[in-house]
Design a binder for these strands. Structure first.
Lengths: 243, 243
DNA sequence: GTCTATAACACGATAGAC
DNA sequence: GTCTATCGTGTTATAGAC
């Protein structure tokens, strides 16, 4: 409610190689994790709305006030979910990108991996999405507070593009990662609404859209399409700036 | 919470020319309207979250329970907002479409008109959007309950396409209205997040995107692009069906 | 700084009397 | 149809213990 951000941006573990901080107060970090994990489990088991803060506290064996000591609100617990899946997705993506040089399979692999990570939470994710959709919410993927997470996500798609052998217009190459991230947001949106068994329609969407994107990227080098490409890039430019 | 739909789908007024129903119980209909109008006014004045059901009831001079008699939940009050703006948008669109035959200005006019209608409610609409974003919500633009409203909205874009002089692939012509509606949803999404003064970035988005769409629609008739167009249409087909 | 226990508040929603 | 009373919830407050 207050817009104060949680400590979720802090790394969960001291990074080896990074300047070693003094050992994080293990006590608090542990309690924090306990509360978060309990909450996520209950969300998954019962749903978000049906899980009360009282239940989370009781199940975790802490007082309600303690839960609020670590998380400003019930919604802030969702940020934990967000961050965790982001991290897992990034790791899975790196695995895939290490072994593949063509743009299409790189993109396809990363998208499917993203769905894989979130799949167990499909019903809960719907509620998560509702919360994230509030533009004023710090959880919104477009908010200032999500900026680090968003940048990290875009970085994955930068890897997808930069590590590929695809030849493309230099300006398009610059914009493509953010465009792909935007497309990824669209896929997530589709997935959240996808009620088909196992969300197979989302899988089909990915399998169909990736070759299409691949083709369009190739086509964009044709002379007839240069003006259209310029127009697209100009539109992005125009819309992006605020003045 | 119960998923029970309101009576919002009922026509507010008996249609002239339609088989005349016996006069609607004026008492109930009046109370209903009173509550709805009071709620929308307070939402606009104070915001959605800040307006309590108690305040709505008090301001309307009825008991809380009575408000719940007419509206299953606070969220269901939003449906009234939704329906009303839809109606106004449709009327504005018809005005524009009557006087213009080219695809681009037709589309541009309809999109700007849509923003015009919603503009006074920008901050409130953000909350509305949050609510509508919940996939299980009957207010979701993709839900079964919204189906009539959605069809009505798509119909506007069918008018945009069918009444235009643009020549296009017959299959594309069939799909274009729904695609344009989807694009319109995207514009609304952008608008909701648009914090620039007067939401001028959204206006620029429309002004930039419409000529681009117009160009792409023309280009789609080129021989080099036929396979790509087929691919797009095939993707839509694949994704749409649930089996 | 971390945590407990408990009470209290305002709100959305419901029950049941009239 | 309309009311009043009441419930369960998220959240806050208080007062303190380690």
């Amino acid at each position: 409610m207050t817009g104060v951000t949680t400590a979720a941006a802090e790394p969960a573990e001291p990074q080896p190689g990074a300047p070693a901080e003094k050992p994080r107060r293990a006590r608090g970090e542990q309690t924090r994790q306990l509360i978060l994990e309990t909450a996520l489990r209950l969300f998954r088991e019962r749903g978000y709305a049906e899980t009360t803060m009282r239940a989370i506290a009781k199940e975790a064996g802490v007082a309600v006030g303690n839960a609020y000591y670590y998380f400003d609100s019930k919604e802030h617990l969702i940020q934990g979910f967000y961050d965790r899946n982001q991290t897992i997705h990034r790791a899975a993506a790196e695995q895939i990108l290490a072994g593949e040089k063509d743009l299409a399979p790189r993109l396809r692999g990363v998208l499917h991996a993203g769905i894989d990570v979130n799949a167990p939470y499909h019903s809960f994710a719907a509620t998560f999405f509702k919360t994230a959709a509030e533009p004023s919410s710090p959880l919104s993927p477009f908010s200032r507070e999500s900026s680090p997470a968003r940048e990290a996500a875009i970085a994955i798609f930068r890897d997808v593009v930069d590590g590929s052998t695809a030849k493309l217009d230099p300006e398009l190459r610059k914009e493509l990662p953010e465009l792909l991230w935007l497309g990824w947001m669209g896929v997530i949106l589709f997935w959240v609404y996808d009620k088909s068994p196992g969300q197979r329609r989302t899988r089909r969407l990915i399998d169909g859209a990736v070759p299409l994107i691949d083709r369009l990227v190739s086509l964009s080098r044709l002379r007839v399409l240069r003006p259209a490409l310029r127009q697209v890039l100009a539109l992005i430019e125009t819309v992006r700036k605020d003045d």
